[in-house]
Design a protein around this nucleic acid. Structure first.
Length: 728
DNA sequence: TTTGAGTCAATAGC
DNA sequence: GCTATTGACTCAAA
C-alpha cells in the first residue's frame, strides 16, 4: 500500500529503484509496522524509522516473518506476534551479518546524497504516500504526506516532523487479518525494476494502483486478537505509580506469572515489567513507553474474566499455569534447599496418613479420579469385558506411595507367598504396576510383541517354579526384582494356587518344554542367547499393565549402577538400537497410549525380573552373543535386506533453516503440500526433508504434550520446568 | 494418498 | 566412548 520511490541516475539511462511496500503488516501486539516488499523493506516502529534495502520479508503461512537478504539468505524468522521492537532495531541497525546495499541503512535519513529524492523530477512532491503508523492505542494511521513532508530542505528526514505527521494523520483502522489480506492483494508488482523512462516506474507502481483503485480498510472488527482489547483509546493521563501498585496487587492476588503477564499483555520480557513495577515513570516523562502503561491500564479495567482469559488463553502448554497452581497450594510451599527427610519415613507417614484418613490413592496424587480398577471387587467384570487399560501415568502418579524396597519383604511370583504379600501391599495402599488377569493366560507365541494390543485369550496354566533353573530362591530374595511388582499393575486379586503369569512359561524353565537355561560352559553361546531371548520375548499376561515410568526409572538406575551401556543393553535386551532405547526409557509413554510399541517395555520388564546374575550375563560385554537378526516387532515386517532401499543421506538443517521451520511449525504444524513446497523452495531444501521435519515435529510435539500432561513421566521435562522462574 | 506410530541410525554434544 | 537428539524410513490405518 504505502510506497516510496526513488530514482538513482545511472550512467546507462535511468535506473529506477523502487522500494514499494507490497505487503503491509501491522503487528498489533507491539506497535510495529512492517512494510514488506520484494526488494526493500521499510520499517516503522515507535520512534524508529529506518530503511533497509534488499531485505525481503516473506510471508510463509499466515503470519511468519522471514527476513531474507537479496541473495535469499534467511536472516531471521519469527512469528509476527513475537516480533519486538528490539528485533526491528537489531535488524535495522546491524551491519554485520546483514548485507547492506550500496546505500546503507541510513539512506532514508540522507536520501539526497544517494541521489534519492523524495520529489519527482518536477521538483515537487509527486506522490502523496499513504503511510500506516500505529499510535499507542493500536490504530493504523494514514497520512497522505507522511514521510515526504517530514523531509527537510536538505533532504534529511526529520524524525520529529515525521511523527508529528503521524499523530495528525487520520486513523484507518486495525490492520487485522482481513485488512492485511486486502493490503496483500493490492500489492503484487515487483518493486525493483529497470526502466528507461522514469514514469514507467510510477505507472507500474502499486502505489498508483492503489490510488487508482483505492480500497477502504474495514473499521475495527471483532477482536480476534487479545491485544486489541488492550488497545482501547488512550486515557489522558495515567497515574503510573498507582497503576503499578494496583497491578502488583492483582499479580499477587491471582498468582499471576509476571513473565506471562509481560508477554501476554505487554509483549515484553519480564525485565521490562519488573522495571516498570519497581520504578514507574511519570506519565508526562513517557513517550513511546506509554503504550505499556496503557495496556496495563486497559487490562486492569477489563472484567476479571477477560483479564484472566488474556493471560490464560495462550499459555504455552500451560506450564506457567501448572506452576502457579502448584505454588498457590498450601501444600506446595517452597521446599528447603536440602530436605532433611528420610524417604522411608516419609513414605511410611504418607501411607499411614492415607490409611488413617482413607484417602483414595488416586485422589491423593495428581487429583486423578479414583481409578475404578483399584476397586478390586467391582472392576473385575468390566475389565474382562472392556479390557480397559489403566494409564500408567495415572498409576505413575502414585509413586509417592511406593514403599521403599527395604520395607517390602521379598515378593516372588510364587504361589505360596503371593497372597500374603498381595494382601499386605494392597493394605498398605501400594499401587501395583502390573495388571494381569489371573484367569487368562499368556499368549503361546513367545515372540509376538503385538499381543499387548490384541491380548489373545488363553487358559491360564499354573506352572511350578522351575527347580532346575540355576537360581535358588535365596538368590531371588537377594535380588532387587521384588521391586518388579511396582512395575506391575494388578487389577485383580490372585486366586490362591496361581502364581503370576507375568512371564512366559519358558522363562520358568518349565521342565515340560525343556527350556532350561543352557549354561555357557555346556552349550554354545547362541543356545544360551536363544534361551535368554525366549525369556526376554516372553509376553505379559493378558490385561497386564506395566507402569512404564517406574520400569524405566528402575532400568535407568540399573544401567547406571551396573555401568551397562545403552548400546549393549539396547541390542541384547531391548532388541532395538541405542537411540530408540534412550528415548524409550528417558521419555516413556504410558502403557495405554502405546499401540504396537509395548514389546520393548515388556522385554525390559522381563529382563528386570530376572535374577541379577542372569541380567548381568545377558549384558556382559565379555559375552559375545550371536545376536540373531532383528526380529520383527509388533507384526511389522523385517526390513528386507535383499532390496536395501537407498537411504537418503541425513539432511543437516542449517540453524537458520531450522529456525524458519520451527517458526512456521508453531504457526502451522500441518502445512499443505503446496506450502511445504514453497517453504522448501524458500529454504533451498527438498520437499521430503521439509515434510519429514513437519511429520517428526508433529509427532514429537504430541509426545511432549502428553508427557507434560503427566509430567511425572518425563524425567527431563521436570528439570526444565523447575528452571522456570520469575513467577509469583 | 496422507498421516501417525514406531523405529533406525547418523550425528551432535558431553 | 557414551547418550540424546533427530532426519529418514516402514508399515498400517484412515
Amino acid at each position: 500500500m504505502g510506497s516510496w520511490g526513488s530514482q538513482a541516475m545511472g550512467s546507462s539511462g535511468h535506473r529506477v529503484m523502487g522500494f514499494t511496500s507490497h505487503r503491509v503488516m501491522w503487528f498489533p501486539s507491539n506497535g510495529i509496522l512492517g512494510f514488506i516488499s520484494h526488494g526493500v523493506m521499510m520499517f516503522t516502529s515507535h520512534g524508529v524509522m529506518r530503511f533497509i534495502s534488499h531485505r525481503v520479508i516473506r510471508l510463509l503461512g499466515s503470519s511468519v516473518i522471514v527476513l531474507q537478504s537479496a541473495s535469499n539468505t534467511v536472516l531471521q524468522t519469527k512469528k509476527y506476534q513475537d516480533w519486538r521492537e528490539e528485533d526491528s532495531e537489531a535488524v535495522m541497525t546491524s551491519s554485520s551479518g546483514y548485507p547492506r546495499d550500496s546505500f546503507g541503512t541510513e539512506a532514508l535519513w540522507n536520501t539526497e546524497s544517494f541521489g534519492m529524492t523524495p520529489t519527482s523530477s518536477s521538483g515537487s512532491p509527486f506522490v502523496s504516500i499513504p503511510v500506516q503508523c500505529p499510535n499507542n492505542n493500536g490504530l493504523l494511521y494514514q497520512s497522505q504526506h507522511g514521510p515526504w513532508n517530514a523531509q527537510t530542505n536538505d533532504g534529511i528526514m526529520d524524525k520529529d516532523k515525521y511523527f508529528n505527521e503521524m499523530e495528525n494523520a487520520k486513523p484507518v483502522g486495525y490492520a487485522n487479518d482481513e485488512n492485511t489480506k486486502i493490503l496483500e492483494e493490492k500489492s503484487s508488482i515487483p518493486a525493483y525494476q529497470f526502466t528507461s523512462v522514469p514514469d514507467n516506474f510510477w505507472n507500474s507502481n502499486p502505489y498508483k494502483a492503489w490510488n487508482d483503485n483505492s480500497i477502504t480498510l474495514k473499521p475495527t472488527e471483532s477482536m480476534d486478537n487479545n491485544m486489541h482489547q488492550l488497545d482501547a483509546p488512550i486515557p489522558e493521563n495515567i497515574d503510573t505509580k498507582e497503576l503499578c501498585e494496583k497491578l502488583t496487587q492483582e499479580i499477587q492476588k491471582y498468582y499471576i506469572c509476571r513473565k506471562y503477564f509481560a508477554k501476554k499483555v505487554l509483549n515484553k520480557g519480564p525485565k521490562v515489567l519488573r522495571k516498570m513495577l519497581n520504578d514507574p515513570k511519570p506519565w508526562n516523562k513517557l513517550q513511546s513507553g506509554r503504550v505499556n502503561y496503557i495496556r496495563i491500564h486497559n487490562w486492569l479495567n477489563l472484567p476479571l474474566e477477560k483479564r484472566l482469559a488474556i493471560l490464560n488463553l495462550e499459555f504455552p502448554e500451560r506450564k506457567c499455569e501448572t506452576t502457579e497452581t502448584i505454588k498457590a497450594g498450601p501444600l506446595n510451599a517452597q521446599l528447603p534447599e536440602k530436605l532433611d527427610l528420610e524417604a522411608e519415613k516419609l513414605t511410611e507417614q504418607l501411607v499411614q496418613e492415607i490409611k488413617t484418613h482413607e484417602i483414595p490413592q488416586a485422589k491423593f496424587t495428581n487429583h486423578q479420579p479414583i481409578q475404578k480398577n483399584l476397586d478390586v471387587d467391582d472392576s473385575i467384570n468390566d475389565q474382562y469385558n472392556q479390557q480397559t487399560l489403566q494409564t500408567s501415568s495415572d498409576k505413575g502418579s502414585n509413586d509417592a506411595l511406593c514403599i521403599p524396597e527395604s520395607q517390602i519383604q521379598t515378593y516372588l511370583h510364587r504361589d505360596d507367598i503371593n497372597d500374603q504379600y498381595n494382601h499386605k501391599l494392597l493394605q498398605k495402599g501400594n499401587v501395583y504396576m502390573y495388571n494381569h488377569d489371573p484367569l487368562l493366560s499368556n499368549s503361546d507365541t513367545a515372540d509376538s510383541n503385538n499381543q499387548y494390543s490384541h491380548q489373545p485369550i488363553n487358559p491360564y496354566k499354573p506352572q511350578p517354579f522351575p527347580a532346575n533353573i540355576n537360581c535358588t530362591r535365596e538368590i531371588f530374595k537377594k535380588q532387587p526384582f521384588h521391586s518388579v511388582d511396582f512395575i506391575l499393575n494388578k487389577m485383580v486379586f490372585k486366586p490362591s494356587g496361581m502364581r503370576s503369569p507375568s512371564l512366559d512359561d519358558s522363562h520358568r524353565g518349565d521342565s515340560d518344554n525343556n527350556s532350561t537355561k543352557p549354561t555357557s560352559s555346556s552349550s554354545s553361546d547362541s543356545e544360551a542367547f536363544a534361551y535368554y531371548e525366549r525369556l526376554l520375548a516372553a509376553p505379559l499376561a493378558n490385561a497386564a499393565v506395566l507402569d512404564t515410568k517406574v520400569l524405566c526409572t528402575s532400568i535407568l538406575q540399573e544401567l547406571e549402577i551396573k555401568k551397562i551401556s545403552q548400546t549393549i543393553f539396547a541390542k541384547r535386551v531391548a532388541n532395538c538400537c541405542q537411540g530408540t532405547l534412550s528415548e524409550l526409557i528417558r521419555k516413556p509413554k504410558s502403557w495405554d497410549s502405546l499401540k504396537s510399541g509395548r514389546g520393548i517395555y515388556v522385554r525390559l520388564f522381563n529382563w528386570y525380573q530376572l535374577p541379577e546374575d542372569r541380567r548381568m550375563e545377558i549384558v556382559d560385554k565379555k559375552m559375545n552373543w550371536a545376536v540373531p537378526e532383528k526380529k520383527p516387532i509388533d507384526g511389522k515386517g523385517i526390513r528386507t535386506s535383499e532390496a536395501p532401499a537407498q537411504k537418503k543421506p541425513r539432511t543437516v538443517f542449517l540453524p537458520v533453516q531450522k529456525s524458519v521451520l520451527q517458526t512456521i511449525f508453531k504457526e502451522n504444524p500441518r502445512p499443505s503440500a503446496d506450502v511445504i513446497s514453497h517453504i522448501a523452495q524458500a529454504l533451498e531444501l527438498d520437499n521430503g526433508s521439509v515434510a519429514n521435519f513437519f511429520q517428526n515435529t508433529r509427532k514429537r510435539t504430541k509426545d511432549q504434550q502428553k508427557r507434560n500432561r503427566h509430567p511425572q513421566n518425563d524425567f527431563q521435562g521436570n528439570q526444565e520446568e523447575n528452571q522456570q522462574g520469575d513467577y509469583y
